[in-house]
Amino acid sequence: MSGENVVYPFSAIVGQDDMKDALMANIVLPSIGGVLIRGEKGTAKSTSVRALADLLPEREVIKGCIFRCSPSDTRNLCESCREILAGNGHPETVPARMRVVELPLCATEDRVAGTLDIEHAITKGTRKFEPGVLASANGNILYVDEVNLLDDHIVDLLLDAAAMGVNFVEREGISYSHPARFLLVGTMNPEEGDLRPQLLDRFGLVVDVEGERDTAKRSEIVKRRLAFEPDPPAFLKQYEAEQQKIRSRILAARQLVRTMEPDDHLIDTAVKVSLSLGVDGHRSDLTLVKTSLALAALDGRSTVGKEHILKAAGLALPHRMRRRPFEESRVDIGTIHSLIEECYS
């Protein structure tokens, strides 16, 4: 761990349990579809996301592949890996840790989607694809700070890629496609303007964070931060045991969730809840089921309990409550909670 790149440890973040749960649930089951964290400045939004890096699991990827294709995930392979696998079936693999890839606000379209490799074109006279941010994001976390300020045409790009899991490039003389499955994590300060509903709907979970109100906790935050700054490595060492605990918890949950099947009760409840929201789409039903599964797995349980679905509803539904842009919603989270209580009584 080099001195300059040490991030504040996840386990040392005081409070903000919803945000932590939402992030961890997504690592356990990435198909939940990402997290949007809304909150004022200085509520540990970015810190939490960057802190994730230290907890992320490793996976085996095909050696030399710039998209880090995993040989076990045959559905999402780039062209060359598909050929390799079709050929001998046993390519060499290396372990790669899931990373947090940041998308800066000022990024241009060609750098996000990828573009013509200029050097290659000049020296070799042929066209070659130069991968962009979406390529690095494949299999990783794509983090957009201040996502509400992102340019519209970049948002369209992200939505396209997120919808298909593939980045299709048909521009600047380049025709190329590669897998782009990423976990979209955005943070925003709602005071700076709201998010386009279409983009909002793409986020599986939304967490609203507030500054800590408890004085004891507030001073604890300051105390830890002050302890971290002068000597980050020493601070990290202090929390290493905690960090390891979370890592194993995530790993175990990832194993467990693969074996879990949602029972009829859970699905029926999710459907009832979605219908009460009056949503047309099916993302709310699906996200609610998946988040419940992931939260149960994080608790080491192989069946979903009422507490899991209650918690999941709080994360997966608030941003879907007022659906079509100009219709008021008649339900609040309290109504939903009592509906769930009813279903699980």
Binding site: E109, D156, F168, E170, R171, E172, G173, S175
Partner: peptide
């Protein structure tokens, strides 16, 4: 793709 250019 949405951002297709004319040459493609």
């Amino acid at each position: 793709p949405l951002n297709v250019t004319n040459d493609r």
